[in-house]
């Protein structure tokens, strides 16, 4: 049966799914906008950076690169280093996104940590086209980020609200998704592996350098463990 849900229904569903991201993105975006404005850049720059870069932690580093007048090679290396983890997100969506037509490039561009997490956890209701749902969630997420950045640059210094700690909403999002996946999964090995690899590499390399080795070891170990994992997975996929 062809699904004939209205655009409104899609946006409504995508909005509910993306609400956990909204809180964090609006506030973190505001913090970025404020920071950039303090560095001497108007809201137009905040809008531009959030529209074309769209990477949370990297944009905070961007502010210091701009104020320091960093070289382009240095900028490129910093970006590759800080955003290196993004290489892994596409692996889950290669097959799905290939069939997305016009939206394909945007879906690839907008695959942030948070959007990736929400999309992994989204169960599309009966009769809705998954591609459209994914597209609207991705677009809404970025609009929160851009809106936050512009608000921060325009009004940041006038907002009198102690938002210290609001960035915890991103941590909370990831914790909740871990729990959700844990309950839905037949095999808990991947989640445990991620936690163990993360902690070991954090202790060995420290907070600035652990994430790429941690993700690489997960990939290698999961590939090595494939034979033992797959007999159970067939059932799970169904």
């Amino acid at each position: 049966m062809e699904n004939m849900r209205s655009k409104k229904e899609y946006i409504g569903f995508a909005f509910r799914q993306s609400m956990p991201v909204m809180l964090g993105y609006v506030f973190l975006g505001t913090a970025f906008g404020l920071l950039l404005q303090n560095a001497g850049y108007s809201f137009v720059w905040a809008f531009l950076a959030s529209a074309v870069i769209y990477a949370g932690s990297m944009q905070f580093v961007l502010v210091s690169l701009l104020t320091a007048g960093a070289g382009l090679l240095n900028t490129a290396l910093m970006t590759l280093f800080i955003n290196g983890r993004h290489i892994f997100y596409g692996l889950s969506f290669v097959e799905k996104y290939k069939k997305m037509g016009k939206a394909y490039p945007y879906m690839v561009f907008s695959l942030t940590d948070e959007t990736y997490s929400v999309l992994c956890g989204t169960k599309v209701p009966e009769g809705m086209d998954e591609n459209k749902v994914f597209f609207w969630i991705s677009l809404l997420d970025q609009s929160y980020w851009v809106a936050g950045s512009v608000i921060g640059a325009l009004a940041g210094s006038r907002i009198h609200f102690d938002s210290t700690g609001i960035d915890f909403s991103m941590t909370a999002l990831f914790v909740a998704i871990v729990v959700e996946q844990w309950q839905g999964a037949r095999l808990h090995f991947p989640a445990v592996l991620g936690a163990v690899c993360g902690l070991i590499w954090l202790v060995v390399l420290g907070p600035d350098e652990f994430i790429l080795p941690a993700l690489c070891s997960c990939v290698i170990i999961l590939i090595l463990a494939r034979r033992r994992m797959e007999p159970d997975m067939g059932k799970e996929e169904g």
Binding site: Q181, P190, A191
Partner: peptide, 12 residues
């Protein structure tokens, strides 16, 4: 299988 690992790494 990777999403579950990635989420746990992201929490760390």
């Amino acid at each position: 299988v990777l999403p579950a690992s990635i989420m746990a790494v992201l929490v760390v």
